[in-house]
Design a binder for these strands. Structure first.
Length: 477
RNA sequence: UCCUCAGUAGCUCAGCUGGUUAGAGCACAUGACUGUUAAUCAUGGGGUCCCUGGUUCGAGCCCAGGCUGGGGAGCCA
């Protein structure tokens, strides 16, 4: 029976015989093997007495070799660790040719490791990131479950083309080569008898459920066929979408803020070692950057600050005023114009979050013209400005991490909106019907799971927080 | 898709104004040492200078086109 290293550190059963199985990180001084089994970022030191093992076995101990080591667990004589394994039996489970194995016990660039995504789990950084990813996924479920939400599985293949959240991937089992020859497409012959796509959002379906179950959330993969090439976008990503009957936009903000804070707290409570490592990693990375690009405070301090402080809440109109009155604006440092009605650019959001407030900001009340059809219309204000009950939660370094709204529950208003947005009624008749049969105020949001992981781990490229990133022109592995 | 930067040993990178045989650290091999913490020390092997074409007596360096990657923008989570 093998013992997991994380348990050995927790329980420290000194004097007992244990077996560990894992991968060699380093073999120091022909005497000390540093072994990782992935259960924790920490490695166990396996101590080898040369006389007790044959030379040909020891020769095979290389970075990456998979071994099983049995021996007595003892207090360590060395400085770097409390306990170590005095090895009496050593077995090679899998050799690792050092001339071919690309992962070495030294700093690799993230770009290089991205091309070795099948092996990058073996590194400290990615081990830490994916352990944190697990705990955050768990935290999401715990947060909603503890509050009486039901986990809803919205469909991944959708027949709806009205979700309006971006370009979609077509799902078909038609013979495309044949179609290319004949030039004829008969969608009625397709698997579902109509055109179908991968979902870009589970929101509309979640709304249907919320108007019966009360509180639901989805947590699943989402697909967008946008030609996006940035450090914040993926073609396949995971999203959490709570939807709550009887909530208004203010309840919605409270929920989003509480959810983010819970996840951060949960990660700090359950991933201490990994986050400390990631914090050190970030500090070392920052040393090579110009001063103005470095983090103003260490990772854990940043997370604590977010957990312990209220998010700033401002309206879109107030946000525009702040931008207009900023020195940044007066010195004409914004590339894009600022005026009421614009869809705020990244540089504007970054200024508000990273320069002006330096903490998470919730912006509400966006102009109706720049937001989706399903967002609830506010009363037209004195100056005749039409806004919707939308909210975006922006965090430093990442930008939008949550986007949501109170939904338009009034049938007539929603129908009118569909017309304005050119959404044929017969495409979303089912969505409209919920407003006909016992409608109620409700609200929800979408939270980008990978963006949450970026925020918690300090990783700056979204491709480094998902095991196998899918981006334009890249679906390797 | 647009703007911008980069591509030199397995990895990280240096390479002067276009000039002899392209370098360093790490990794690897061999040896030494043995309570090490990415161990250390010595010696050694290792190159399609991204690709194609061009300019030139001569190109890693200059020019054109392409490929790949990074950063930024748009789209958004």
């Amino acid at each position: 029976m093998r013992s997991e290293i994380v348990k050995l550190f927790a329980e420290q059963p000194v004097g007992t015989e244990v077996t560990v199985k894992g991968w060699v990180r380093t073999f120091r001084n022909d005497q000390f093997i540093s072994v990782s089994d992935g259960s924790t970022i920490r490695t166990l030191q396996v101590v080898i007495n040369k006389e007790n093992h044959n030379e040909s076995t020891l020769k095979r101990i290389q970075t990456g070799t998979c071994i099983a080591a049995t021996g007595r667990l003892e207090k360590s004589l060395g400085k770097g660790q409390d306990i170590e394994l005095i090895c009496s039996q050593l077995e090679i489970l899998g050799d690792c040719d050092p001339n071919e194995f690309p992962i070495q016990m030294k700093r690799h660039s993230l770009e290089f490791l991205r091309e070795k995504a099948h092996l990058r789990f073996r590194t400290n950084t990615f081990g830490a990131v994916f352990r944190v990813r697990h705990h955050l996924a768990f935290a999401i479920h715990k947060f909603f479950n503890d509050r009486g939400f039901f986990y809803l599985h919205s469909p991944i293949i959708t027949g709806s083309d009205a979700e309006g959240a971006g370009e979609m991937f077509r799902v078909t089992n038609l013979d495309l080569d044949e179609i290319a020859k004949t030039g004829k497409v008969d969608y009625s012959q397709d698997f579902f008898g109509k055109t179908t796509n991968l979902t870009v959002s589970g929101q509309l379906e979640a709304e249907l459920a919320a108007l019966a179950l009360g509180k639901v959330y989805t947590f699943g993969p989402t697909f967008r066929a946008e030609n996006s090439n940035t450090s914040r976008h993926l073609a396949e990503f995971w999203m959490i979408e709570p939807e709550v009957a009887f909530n208004d936009i203010y309840d919605n903000m409270d929920l989003g803020e509480a959810c983010l804070k819970f996840c951060l707290k949960y990660a700090m409570d359950n991933c201490k070692d990994d986050l400390e490592f990631l914090q050190e990693r970030e500090i070392n990375e920052d040393k090579q950057k110009p001063v103005d690009e470095r983090q103003s405070m260490p990772l854990l301090e940043r997370l604590n600050m977010v957990v312990n402080n209220d998010f700033v809440r401002i309206t879109y109109t107030e946000a525009i005023d702040i931008l207009l009155q900023s020195n940044h604006y007066k010195k004409k440092k914004f590339k894009y114009p600022v005026e009421w009605g614009i869809d705020m650019q990244s540089e504007h959001e970054r200024y508000l979050v990273e320069k002006h407030f330096q903490k998470p900001v919730i912006i509400t009340g966006y102009p109706a013209a720049i937001k989706a059809f399903y967002m609830r219309m506010n009363e037209t204000d004195a100056s005749g400005r039409k806004t919707v009950a939308a909210m975006d939660i922006l965090v430093p370094g990442i930008g939008e991490i949550i986007g949501g709204s109170q939904r338009e529950e009034r049938y007539d208003v929603l129908l009118e909106k569909c017309k304005q947005f050119n959404i044929p009624e017969d495409h979303i008749w089912w969505y409209l019907e919920t407003r006909k049969f016992g409608t109620c105020p409700h609200a929800g949001f979408g939270m980008g799971f990978e963006r949450l992981i970026m925020f918690v781990t300090g990783m700056t490229n979204i491709r480094d927080v998902i095991p196998f990133p899918r981006t334009p022109q890249n679906a390797e592995f």
